[in-house]
Simulated scan of single mutants.
Amino acid sequence: MLAIKGTLGLESDGRNFGGRERIALLLKIGELGSISAAARDVGMSYKGAWEAVDAMNNLAGEPLVLRAVGGRSGGSATLTPRAQRLIDVFQRMEAIHKRFLKHLTAVADDPLSDIDLVRRFTMKTSARNQLAGTVSAVETGAVNDVIQLDIQGGQRLVATVTHESAQSLGLAPGKNAFVLIKASSVIIGLPDDSMRLSARNQLKGKVSSVKRGTVNAEVGIELDGGNAIVSIITIASLDSLALREGTSVVAIVKASSIIVGTFDN
């Protein structure tokens, strides 16, 4: 059974104090009175523990750990009241966080899918066209791989990426992915059974909107199946094709103009 998991971190004014690992280190320093003993207890190297303490002290703007250097044991360490409050706040937040994740699992019909969808909504990119799909096939080449993706409505996109990129992204049949297409890379044509093009992607749809500018026009296209994309074409092309809302068109995109990405961390 799949479960939702998440991690909690503390940040203030853009400064990241860290998460559970650093808080656990502070807690053990308070219990054991020694940075080296605390490091051993939480499975952290002595050097890593000292660096973590220095970072937390610097980020807090005031000491969280007071150290007394010297002695056969290497000195001692104590927590300041500020550190104690930080531990308390984190523990309270973590308890709330756990209840939130448990509640999310209970209320969502498909929580993992829903979370992935929210993450897609928050993605920021300059490319106007963002489409989600599933890899259906990968044709491996010496330099470039050809990636086929099934998108909403039964249509298919073909993209060419370097073999190295395909491996890095873990592209394989069944993999969820997304594509980015610049509006200027989308060519608009009128349906014609005799039309023959070298472009691998020829997506059928209808014009949903036309925004006429001085030189260029922005044409929205609703693809068969529900996806929507935008194309930027010249006014001359707009007039030549007599494009208006409801006009049946074909959105043409070269495979090399498609960027493929995944949501893996």
Rank of each mutant, 00 (worst) to 15 (best):
G225H: 05
N176M: 02
R212Q: 15
D224Q: 10
V118E: 13
G43W: 07
E139G: 09
S208I: 05
K211A: 15
R15D: 08
D150F: 01
Q152Y: 03
R120K: 14
S136H: 00
A49S: 09
G153A: 10
G30R: 07
H163S: 04
E21L: 11
G30W: 14
D41S: 15
R82C: 02
S165F: 00
V158D: 01
S248P: 11
N58C: 08
R72D: 15
I29K: 03
A255H: 07
N176Q: 08
G75Q: 05
G189L: 09
A159C: 09
S237M: 09
T105S: 11
S126T: 13
G170C: 03
K5V: 12
M56E: 04
L180M: 07
E11M: 13
F17K: 07
Q202F: 08
R20A: 13
I232D: 01
T80N: 07
A242K: 12
V42K: 02
R15T: 08
P191G: 06
V219L: 03
M123S: 09
N216Y: 07
G174V: 00
L117P: 00
S257A: 14
T162E: 00
L79G: 03
T80G: 06
A108K: 06
V143W: 00
L8S: 08
I187V: 14
E51I: 08
L238C: 05
I233W: 08
V260S: 02
D54C: 03
T234H: 10
D88Q: 14
N176W: 01
V250D: 01
A127F: 01
K124V: 15
L79A: 08
